[in-house]
Design a protein around this nucleic acid. Sequence first.
DNA 1: ACCAGTCTTTAGTATGCTATAATGACGACA
DNA 2: TGTCGTCATTATAGCATACTAAAGACTGGT
Lengths: 218, 218
Amino acid sequence: MITQEREDYLKTIYKIELEESPVRTTAIAKALGVEPASVTGVIKRLAELDLLEHQPYKGVTLTPSGRKVALSVIRRHRLVELYLTQSLGYSWDEVHDEAERLEHAVSDKFIERIATILGHPASDPHGAPIPTKDGTIAPRVGHPLSTLVAGQSGMVERVSDDDPALLRYLSTLGIQPGSAVRVRDVAPYGGPIHVRIDDNEHDIGIEAASHVFIELTA
Amino acid sequence: MITQEREDYLKTIYKIELEESPVRTTAIAKALGVEPASVTGVIKRLAELDLLEHQPYKGVTLTPSGRKVALSVIRRHRLVELYLTQSLGYSWDEVHDEAERLEHAVSDKFIERIATILGHPASDPHGAPIPTKDGTIAPRVGHPLSTLVAGQSGMVERVSDDDPALLRYLSTLGIQPGSAVRVRDVAPYGGPIHVRIDDNEHDIGIEAASHVFIELTA
DNA sequence: ACCAGTCTTTAGTATGCTATAATGACGACA
DNA sequence: TGTCGTCATTATAGCATACTAAAGACTGGT
């Protein structure tokens, strides 16, 4: 009934819903790398299964049971990511692809076992919150570094996890969840952002900065 | 190109081929729990992909590339099984189902990493040999305990891994790979086999005994 | 209030795997 | 050697997912 593909659809819709609701067909298609026409077909089936509501030509919103599935998948993904770094020596740019497949294959037993081993952690290697077994998840409080202005400071809450090259780049800058950040200066017209990361200063492009989320302190 | 289902077909055919070759359609169907007609369709496709040869109405035999895929799947399955027992506290009756899904989801990186952690083991928790990365595998030397006669003795080489209830039963008898076994007596007409397992004596039915493989010493 | 451009859906096709029902090949045995 | 029962195959259909192409719905701007 719930196939891997459907799990992916629900997970993707959940994530987009955090930014915009209802979630439009094109947004799902782009996120999943398929054509919009394919999305229409799948969401019709997911609507029949009461996993989401579909307002034709408007978009979809997850139902409680759809959200439950999505959070379960996300929990599996993030716990696996953390386990791979903590116990199998993966670096943070290597875990996403592996977790993307494992999230559909691991059992509840597996997940609860690694959750215990990891001490029921609150977030994954990229700082994303891990939903609990019963489906609660910490709210996201960070702002994209690209939206900050000179003088603002805070802590890296999380970074996007799906671009390995970006993650390797961020590593060279010393950016990781928990890093102290202070914006020194922002060049105009999409120019680089001059920031202090812990004890070093760097110029970061808008594109990279948009994938780094800062929890403001002041 | 190689789907999960096709990996399962190749793995299954490989295992049956150890007993009988060519491998007949019905044998595959029974092992996979599908109808023979479905098998015919899939093996035709696998033959086109040069993963096996199909003699219509006779059966199939794996090609070298088909065998390579099969051994890769089996390597993944058995390493995962061992990792689950060694590092995640699974008991030997719990690992098969979990490995059955994970074998299709884990990457080479994952497998080689756990192989290193486990010290490049030779066999899984049930005593089955683990193929090496380059596709070599130790020959099977055990005989079904059900075929032994009074007086024969040896060591448990391996046991069937796919029936959790059987594995739990064997545990209560103290049967595991490496156990010393001596057949005391075999009752006629499919009667129980009276055996000494390490330091205890038990009566074991033919059915259970047929899933325990003994490496003879004398 | 309409029109143009964009987004969404429908229609039709393909692939992969499964099933049931019917046909065809094989082999054992009289 | 012919026949019967078993095994394998073909034929047809359904489900899930994807695609392209075409038609329909929506919306922003004049």
